[in-house]
């Protein structure tokens, strides 16, 4: 062996937030995939729309609008604890992380509840016509995202209280927060499309 250049990494940290973290990239790519799916399904909505004379064929009833507004409100509200939780994660403040994670989980469960209300309030079924299919499709897709988020949140609640909480879990908490932003962000265009259409018809 002769002369070697050496890159020493002994003192590097064992975790990092944001785009420095591979898991952040993984979830970002998942968001790309799911975001593309939402975008395509919305395109399907508008594609189908321009082929049908009367649209919506069965307008979502007033109840649907209330339910949709409730879901939107709950989801938007859940952004606040998520944001605060991320802040606590950067500082490594476990107590605050726990508190906000519980709050956020409660809100996500509430959103799941209003979502069930939404489904029940729809005055048409998925097999009524193409409009019904695409609206149910959009809602179901978002419910899948929502459900995945709820399961993750619940897992984190258990982990945070049961321990052992490792330092790298701070990053996982942050990435989970980012996914939750996506759940909320993905819902907004869907809500605007489904209910806005009925509202401003």
């Amino acid at each position: 062996m002769s002369e070697r250049r050496r890159v020493t990494v002994r003192e590097l940290p064992s975790y990092a937030f944001g785009p420095r973290d591979p898991m952040w990239w993984g979830v970002a790519l998942l968001m790309c995939i799911e975001g593309t799916t939402i975008a395509l399904l919305l395109l399907m909505y508008f594609y189908t729309r321009q082929r049908v004379d009367v649209w919506p064929t069965t307008a979502p009833a007033r109840d649907s609008l209330y339910a949709g507004a409730a879901t939107t409100a709950v989801l938007l509200a859940s952004i606040v604890p998520t944001h605060l939780m991320n802040g606590a994660a950067y500082r490594g403040d476990l107590a605050r992380i726990r508190r906000f994670m519980v709050l956020m989980t409660a809100l996500s469960l509430a959103a799941l509840g209003t979502r069930i209300w939404e489904f029940r309030a729809l005055p048409f079924r998925w097999d009524t016509d193409a409009y019904g299919s695409v609206v149910w499709g959009l809602l179901t897709l978002q419910t899948t995202h929502l459900g995945l988020g709820v399961i993750e949140n619940l897992m984190f609640v258990v982990l945070l209280y049961r321990g052992p909480v490792e330092k790298k879990h701070l990053v996982d908490v942050e990435v989970n927060g980012m996914y939750w932003y996506f759940v909320v962000g993905g819902w907004l265009p869907i809500a605007a499309t489904i209910y806005g259409e009925a509202l401003f018809r």
């Binding site: 399907m44 594609y47 189908t48 082929r51 049908v52 064929t57 998925w126 097999d127 009524t128 016509d129 193409a130 409009y131 019904g132 299919s133 695409v134 149910w136 499709g137």
Partner: peptide, 15 residues
């Protein structure tokens, strides 16, 4: 029984 591709009730096979 959804109708994404059923042209008879608003779907489109071309989709």
């Amino acid at each position: 029984g959804t109708h994404f591709f059923n042209s008879a009730v608003g779907g489109d096979p071309l989709l």
